[in-house]
């Protein structure tokens, strides 16, 4: 079945979502309870736009929920997004339902209640802001370094010089330190005798002047 996305909700997000799906060659239809949004969309884009309360099954039907493979519920009310996704799935057999929620506490609850995917914009923004803070704190650890110390990572490939060699035998520049080795899902804190294996990610603390020399050494060896 060809993909068809039904976007439900209100506001400018409808237009930009519709445009994004259109750019990916996916058929799009929109259902909105706001008359003005419906009129604007119908004027700006050539697609099926239905004006009606999306929590009432008859409007979902009119917007072609039965022919849709995906539904994105982006209404203002979390309760509307829950009910729209549930009705779309139960009554119209929509494969994949995605709900936006404002209250992050509902992410797990809505999933438990049968919504395919739940996205909390509040959560996303909060996480970005707090990650940013964490990053700034980290940068403060090297206040005198003038930004000249880098954290760089190198994936060790088949045939690389460093593969299988103990760290103590690698003539790395003196201003470079292997601070950690990411192996599978774990992290190894290296000692002199630790070996780098194929597939490892070596985390380097290195000055900007020596970064390329250090990477070249790990990849191709001295020379």
């Amino acid at each position: 079945m060809r993909r068809r996305v039904l976007i439900v909700g209100e506001g400018r997000i409808l237009y930009f979502l519709a445009r994004a799906f259109r750019a990916r060659k996916v058929e799009v239809a929109v259902l909105t309870p706001v008359a003005r949004d419906a009129a604007t969309l119908a004027r700006r884009m050539d697609l099926l736009v239905v004006h009606g309360d999306p929590t009432q099954p008859r409007f979902l039907e009119e917007a072609g929920a039965g022919r849709s493979t995906d539904l994105v519920a982006a209404a203002e009310g979390d309760e509307d997004n829950l009910v729209v996704c549930q009705i779309a799935k139960k009554l119209f057999g929509v494969d994949r339902t995605i709900a936006l929620v404002h209250d992050p506490d509902y992410v797990d609850v809505f999933r438990q209640l049968g919504v395919g995917a739940v996205i909390s914009t509040t959560d996303l923004l909060a996480r970005i802001v707090s990650d940013r803070t964490a990053l700034e704190e980290f940068e403060n650890l090297v206040p005198d370094a003038d930004g000249s110390i880098l954290v760089s990572d190198v994936v060790i490939g088949e045939g690389d010089f460093a593969a299988g060699r103990p760290l103590s035998e690698l003539p790395l520049p003196s201003d470079c330190l292997v601070g950690g080795i990411v192996r599978g899902k774990g992290m190894v804190i290296p000692r002199g005798g630790s070996r780098l294996e194929v597939g490892d990610r070596a985390i380097l603390l290195v000055t900007s002047e020596s970064e390329s020399a250090a990477i070249a050494l790990l990849k191709t060896g001295p020379g």
Partner: peptide, 16 residues
Amino acid sequence: EKDSLNLLVAQVARSV
């Protein structure tokens, strides 16, 4: 006054 809100509250009351 809202069907969807009543459905949300009812399902949360039961399931959560």
